[in-house]
Each structure stands twice: as structure tokens, then as C-alpha cells.
Amino acid sequence: MTQTRIVLAARPDGAPRPEDFAVTSGPIPEPAAGQLLLRTLYLSLDPYLRGRMGSSASHSSGTQPVTLGAVMEGGTVGEVVVSRDPRFVPGDVVAAATGWQQFAVAPAAAVRRLNPADAPVSTALGVRGMPGLTGYAAIREIGRPRPGETVVVAAATGTVGSLAGQMARLEGSRVVGIAGGERKVRWLRAAGFDVALDHRDPDFESNLADATPDGIDVYVESVGGRVRQAVWPRLNRHARVPVCGVASAYSAAATGLDTDADGLMSGLVTRSITLRGFVFSDFEYLRPTFEREVADWLRAGDVVHHEDVVDGLVNAPSAFLGMLAGEHLGKRLVRVAPEPQSEDQASIA
């Protein structure tokens, strides 16, 4: 039997294109001792994957890029089809990192069992997964907003930004969310952000100034570019800036970047600003508390989230390119296969 896989066909020069990917077929692998054969249910599409494609002059991933001709990387939720480990049985649902393919073998030690009773399993790739933990750590460990402070969140409708902003609201802070387009601005307002701004608005800089009359105490950064340039002069003394990405640099030419590092560092000194870059794995120790708290917030309605689901593995490249262009709202996922029915669901059917 064969399966569909999507491989990296070329390294992009600038923004990725459809021809940088190729749809191929290959054998369904056999698991060895200690391994699981997984059927992919959901595939996560995330901005960091642009770095995994390589050839970005201005952004490099902390991990080696995907080899040309190899399956594209990516987080997944999968169903155990064959288990060669006593801890798992067929039908178990797990979070893994098996990439853009229908079936994959993974070491049992490298997957995380999911309980569908806790939350929809797709949330393990979003609000209760890597992006959620990123936003959680940005607020809980780095930003640490206090009641009455002003928090500004870039890319605020994404999973990272939306959770970070809603957490800051729960802490009693005043939260300004920044997104691109009226649809996203409306969603931020409905989600409880105090102010929602459209960075595409020609008057964005003056709108931001009006929205932050007392300056900015915490800025959750994942965008860079025009947004960062507007925010930076408004940072208060002792402001905290957690940085989990710079989306404007992912496909940009190096000559297009703001390279005034001396000016930036001077601002850090004169205003005693804390600037901390990080990745979610730096805070893996927070996962038990993070998962418990987010599950409680979701059940109570204190936190809302949105999933933008595209059906079909073959549509992953176009969905990924659309995500990089900002066409999605919330967490973008590819549904590769239907979820298995529970015994209760099967009896109802």
C-alpha cells in the first residue's frame, strides 16, 4: 500500500511558491519495537515552517532546514494504527511531529497521548499546543503584566497572540490587539480585547498613539516591520518585550531589514527595557500547568479560540502560502483524515 506525501521540492528565493512543494506517493512504513504507526488526522501549519524551508536571507531557523526531496516537517495529531509499544493501543490519539504525510512511524517516547474528553484533539496543535504554550510563556514568564498596565499584542488573532492577550486581560491589564483587516479586528473585539487596531490602516501609527496614551508596558512581538517600528517609541521605562518571531523577516531580503542594532540597544539601556527572544521549548516545564489552566479557561468561557481548517493533505501547500500571506484567522490546520469515533459516538451512529 502507498500513501500521499508532500515534500520540499525547492528552496524559495523570497516568498515561497506552490512549485516549492511536490505531491508524491510512498510506502506506508512498518513500525519496529517501541514504535507506532500513526494515521495523520490533523496537520499544523505554522510560520516557523518558512525557516525550515531554508534560503531566507534574513531569517534562519534554529534547526537545520528540511532536506530537498524530504517530507515537509510539521506538528500533527494522529491515530495509532499499529502499536509496537505496550503503552499504546490502536485507536489512541496522540500529538506528534510526523510532517506532511498520511501515515508515519514515530517512537512511542516521542508522542503525547491526548484525551478527547479534555478538549477537541485539534486544540493540541493550537491553543493547547505549541502556539498556545508560546503565548502562555510570553505572558506568564516574560511579560508578567500587572493590573492596570497596558499590553500590546502583535498578530493578535493568531493562536499565540490571542491567548497572550486574553491572559493579560485575565490579569487585569488593558490590552490592545493588532491584526490585519476588518474581519480580524472584529474578532478581537468580540474576544474581549480593550482596543483592536488594523495595521493596514494608513493612520495606524496615530491610532496606536491614541490607544496607548500612557505608553506600553508589555509588547508581545511576533511580527516586526511597521508594527514594531510604531510600538517601539511608545515603550515605557521597564517595559518587557517577549519575542517569539519576526514574521516580516521570514521571506524578506536582508537589505530590506531595519539593521539599526545600535539604536535599538541604546533604547534598551536608556529605558531599562527587557527584550527576550525565546522558543516554546524553553518553557516545556510549564506544560502541565499550561494545559490544565487553558482547559479550565476554555470550559469556563474565559478564553476563546478559532480554528481555520482546510480539508485534504494535497491542499496543504496552498493553505500554508495563504497563512503566510495572512488570509487565515486563528489557528490554521489541515484535516488529513476524519477523527475516529468513540464508542459512544459509534453507538449513536
Rank of each mutant, 00 (worst) to 15 (best):
Q3D: 11
R5N: 00
V7T: 13
L8S: 03
A9C: 09
D13L: 12
G14M: 09
E19I: 01
P27C: 09
E30K: 10
A32V: 06
A32W: 00
L36M: 08
L36T: 08
T40V: 00
L45T: 07
P47I: 11
L49K: 01
G51R: 00
G51F: 00
M53D: 04
M53G: 06
S55Y: 12
S56K: 12
A57M: 08
S60F: 07
G62L: 15
V66I: 09
G74N: 01
G75K: 00
T76C: 14
V81K: 12
D85I: 02
P86I: 06
V89C: 10
P90N: 12
G91H: 05
D92S: 08
V94H: 02
T98F: 01
T98P: 00
Q101N: 13
Q102N: 12
V105N: 09
A108D: 06
A110H: 12
R113S: 12
R113L: 15
P116N: 11
V121L: 07
S122Y: 03
L125T: 10
V127Y: 05
G129T: 13
G132T: 10
L133S: 03
Y136H: 09
A137N: 05
R140E: 12
R144M: 13
R146L: 15
V151C: 07
V152R: 06
V152Q: 07
V153I: 13
V153H: 03
V153D: 02
A156K: 01
A156M: 05
T157K: 07
T157F: 03
G158Y: 10
A164K: 01
A164N: 01
R169I: 03
L170R: 08
E171S: 11
E171K: 04
S173I: 05
S173C: 06
V176L: 03
V176K: 05
G177V: 01
G181Y: 03
G181V: 13
K184T: 07
V185R: 06
R186M: 02
W187E: 13
L188C: 02
F193P: 00
D194Y: 01
V195L: 09
D198S: 10
D201M: 10
T212C: 15
I216T: 04
D217E: 02
D217Y: 08
V218Q: 01
Y219Q: 02
S222L: 08
S222Q: 13
R226D: 15
R226P: 11
V231C: 06
W232G: 01
L235S: 07
R237D: 14
R237F: 06
R237H: 11
H238A: 11
P242G: 08
C244G: 06
S251F: 11
A253D: 15
T255F: 00
L257D: 11
A261N: 00
S266C: 10
V269S: 12
L275D: 13
R276F: 00
F278Q: 01
D282L: 01
A295Q: 11
W297M: 09
L298Y: 03
A300Y: 04
D302W: 05
D302L: 15
V303Q: 04
H306W: 00
E307F: 11
D308Q: 05
D308K: 06
D308Y: 09
V309K: 01
G312D: 08
F320N: 02
G326N: 06
E327A: 14
E327G: 10
V336W: 03
P338T: 06
P340C: 11
Q341G: 12
D344H: 13
D344S: 13
S347A: 15
